[in-house]
Design a protein around this nucleic acid. Structure first.
Lengths: 351, 351
DNA sequence: TCGGGTTTTGACACCGGTTTCCAGGCCAGT
DNA sequence: ACTGGCCTGGAAACCGGTGTCAAAACCCGA
C-alpha cells in the first residue's frame, strides 16, 4: 500500500551515524568490529526492517545466489520431493531455487540450457535423472561457471558433485525377497534403453537371480519405457506366454501399475495369482489396489545433501554421497501358492 | 574451463566505438537509434557472445525478473503442470521461475513468505490453491510490491489477478452424467472444511442433484481431507450404511482412489457394483484399476495465462480468466445394473 | 551559407551493495 | 615524549547496467 521505498544500506548508515562499510561489515558478520558499534547498527537494522538488496549484492560480489534445477522427469512426485528437499536446505539461507523443466529430446536442448544459465547467471545447477546422465550437459554447465551436482542411480561423477542411490543392490534385494517367498519364475520389465537407472536395475535383477540360485528365462525379460502403457504391454506379453511367471518385477511403479492393469484385465487376482514389485515408491504405489510392494529411495534426503553440496561444499564433505534404498513390503507380493501344475485358465474364486 | 570473464557492456561499447548508453539502447530496442549504428553494435554483441548481466539490470531498473510460485501442494502432478505452464510462457523471456513450497499450517507461514519475497525482491508471485484462497496472504504479497495472480476454483479476485476453473459447474455435470446412467442413490465425499474448492464442489453436487430431480440423502454425505486415507474412511462409511449408494462422487482423485480401495476391500467390483467419479484427472486416475472417470481442468493452460498476467498484463487482458473443465469418461462409472431390491449382504460373484 | 528543428549520441550521475586503501586512535616499548 | 604496530572506521572507486539532459550531427528551406 504505502509504497514505502525499501530502506537501503545508506539509510542504515546515516541513522546509526557510521559509514556504509561499517554496516556492510555488520551484515557480513566481519569479526574486526567493535562490539558496541555492531549492536548500535543492528538496532537500527531491526528498527528499519532493513533487508539487503540481493541484486546489488550479486552485482558487487560478482556471483549470485540462485541455484537451478534442470530436469526432464516423468515422475512428478519425485521432482516435487527434490524441490522440497532442496528447500529444506536453503530455506533459511539467501539462496533461491529456480526451476527449469526441459524437453530432453529437443534438438536445441543444449542451447536452451546455455541461454538459461547465461541469462540468469546461475551459481549452481542440479541435474536430475535422466538428464543427469548426460555428460555433455554437465560439462556445458561447468564451462559456464556453475557448480553442478548430479543425482543418479550410479557413480556418475566424483563424490563432491554427485548424490546417488544404489539401484542395483536394491533390485537384487527385491528379487531375493521374491525368491524367499517361493517364486522361481520371475518376470522382469526393464526400463528404456539408454537410461542408466534402467541399466542398473537390470544388472540388479540379474545379480539377484544369480544369488538366489535361479535361472533366467529369456522369455520372461521384457522392456518398457517407464510409462504405464508400456507396463501394460509388457504384462500382456509376459502373461500370454506359455508358462507365465508367478511374480513380476517392474523397473518402476508406473510400469508395475501397468502390469497390474494387464493382470486384472485378464481376470487374474493380485497377489494370489501374481506377485508384483515396483520401484520408486511414488504416490501411485500406495494408492492402487492392492498396494504395491516397491523400492523406496530417499529422494528428499538425497536432495537435501545435493543442495548442501551446491551451497556449502565444505560442510557437505562430511555427508554421504550414496544412499541405500529399502524395500517397502505391501500387499502386491505374497508367498507363492503351490502350483496345481495345470495352467489356470480361469482365476480361482474366493471365499 | 577458460574462466574467461564474461564480456560487459563496456567491452561492447569500446569495441564498437560507441558509448555504453548506445549499447544499452540497442539491447532495449530503443526506436530512436540509427539503423547503421544498431547493426554495428549488434555485430559486436554477436561476436562477443555478450549477454547483459541481469543483476546489474535489476539494480538499475529497480525491479527484477523473478516470479515466485508459492504453494502448499496436495498434488504433485498439478504443481508440476503449473510449473510447466508457467515455463511455456516465460521460457523465451528474461523471466525466471523461483519456487517455494511451504507448509500452510506453519505458524510462521506469513513471516516466512514475507522474508522470502523481501529477500529475493520478487517481481510477482503466483499462488496455488489452497494458499490462493488466503486473502491475508495475497494482501501481504501486494503490500510487499508484488503483482499477485491467484489460481483457484472460483472468483477469488478481480479478473486481472486470477485464473479460475468452474468447479461448481463441472461437478454438476458429473452428477448429471451419473443420473443419466441411471443412478439415483449417489454418495458424496466432500473436501476439507475451509477449502474454497471443496465448497464449490459441494455446491456443484447439490445443484447437480437438484437439476437431475434427485433427492439428497444426508446419510450419503461424507467429508474427507483430500487424502487417500480419508477417501478410504469415507468409502467405508458410505458402503456400511443401511442402503449403500450405487455411485459415489469424490471431490478429488486421491479420495476416489480411497473409495475404490474400500470397495475392493469389501469384495465389491467396480464399476459393476459401484460407480465412482473423481476430480482433477491426476496421473493416478488413469493408472488405477478400473481407470477413473474424473473431471479434468486445464491446469497447464491456466498456468500459461497466469504467467502472462504476471509478466505482460497488457497482452493478458485479452485472455480468458475462467476455464471450463470437462468430464473424462473412463471405466469407473457405468450404467447402473437394475437392483434386485434385496440388500446385497454379500457381493455378487461374477461369471 | 546560415538558422532552426529533428534526430542521434554521449557524459555523467545513480541503483545499493563490496573492496581497496588509508587515516586516525590507542597502546606498548624505548 | 616519540615511534611503530594494531584496530577500527571512512572515503572513494567499482560492479554493470539505466535515466537525464544536453551536445553534436543532420536535415531542410531561405
Amino acid at each position: 500500500m504505502a509504497k514505502a521505498p525499501k530502506p537501503t544500506i545508506n539509510d542504515v548508515a546515516r541513522l546509526s551515524g557510521v559509514s556504509k562499510k561499517t554496516v556492510s561489515r555488520v551484515i557480513n558478520k566481519s569479526p574486526l568490529l567493535n562490539q558496541a558499534t555492531r549492536e548500535k547498527v543492528e538496532a537500527v537494522i531491526a528498527q528499519l526492517d532493513y533487508v539487503p538488496n540481493p541484486q546489488a549484492r550479486a552485482l558487487a560480489l560478482r556471483r549470485n545466489f540462485l541455484i537451478g534445477l534442470i530436469h526432464d522427469n516423468p515422475n512428478a512426485q519425485m521432482v516435487l520431493n527434490v524441490q522440497e528437499g532442496i528447500l529444506d536446505t536453503i530455506r533459511a539461507t539467501e539462496f533461491a531455487l529456480v526451476v527449469r523443466p526441459v524437453d530432453r529430446h529437443s534438438p536445441t536442448l543444449l542451447d536452451d540450457i546455455h541461454r538459461f544459465i547465461e541469462q540468469q547467471r546461475l551459481y549452481g545447477v542440479m541435474l536430475l535423472p535422466p538428464l543427469s546422465e548426460n555428460d555433455e550437459l554437465a560439462r556445458l554447465c561447468r564451462d559456464l561457471g556453475c557448480t553442478v551436482v548430479r543425482m543418479g542411480s550410479a557413480r556418475l561423477d566424483d563424490e563432491a558433485h554427485l548424490v546417488a542411490s544404489n539401484d542395483q543392490q536394491a533390485v537384487s534385494e527385491a528379487v531375493a525377497w521374491l525368491a524367499e517367498l517361493g517364486h522361481s519364475r520371475i518376470g522382469f520389465v526393464a526400463g528404456p534403453d539408454g537410461f542408466r537407472s534402467a541399466r542398473e536395475r537390470e544388472l540388479g535383477f540379474i545379480a539377484g537371480m544369480g544369488r538366489a540360485g535361479l535361472t533366467i528365462d529369456p522369455a520372461l525379460l521384457t522392456r518398457g519405457d517407464y510409462r504405464f502403457e508400456s507396463g501394460q504391454a509388457a504384462g500382456d506379453a509376459l502373461l500370454d506366454g506359455k508358462t507365465p511367471p508367478t511374480a513380476i518385477f517392474a523397473s518402476n511403479d508406473e510400469m508395475a501399475a501397468g502390469v497390474l492393469h494387464a493382470a486384472c484385465a485378464r481376470g487374474l487376482t493380485v497377489p494370489q495369482d501374481l506377485s508384483i514389485i515396483g520401484f520408486d515408491d511414488t504416490a501411485i504405489a500406495a494408492h492402487i489396489w492392492p498396494p504395491l510392494t516397491t523400492v523406496r529411495w530417499p529422494i528428499r534426503a538425497m536432495a537435501r545433501t545435493a543442495a548442501l553440496k551446491l551451497t556449502r561444499p565444505e560442510t557437505a564433505a562430511r555427508e554421504p554421497s550414496f544412499f541405500p534404498s529399502d524395500l517397502v513390503r505391501r500387499a502386491s507380493a505374497v508367498e507363492r501358492v503351490p502350483d496345481q501344475t495345470a495352467s489356470s485358465d480361469h482365476p480361482p474364486l474366493k471365499s
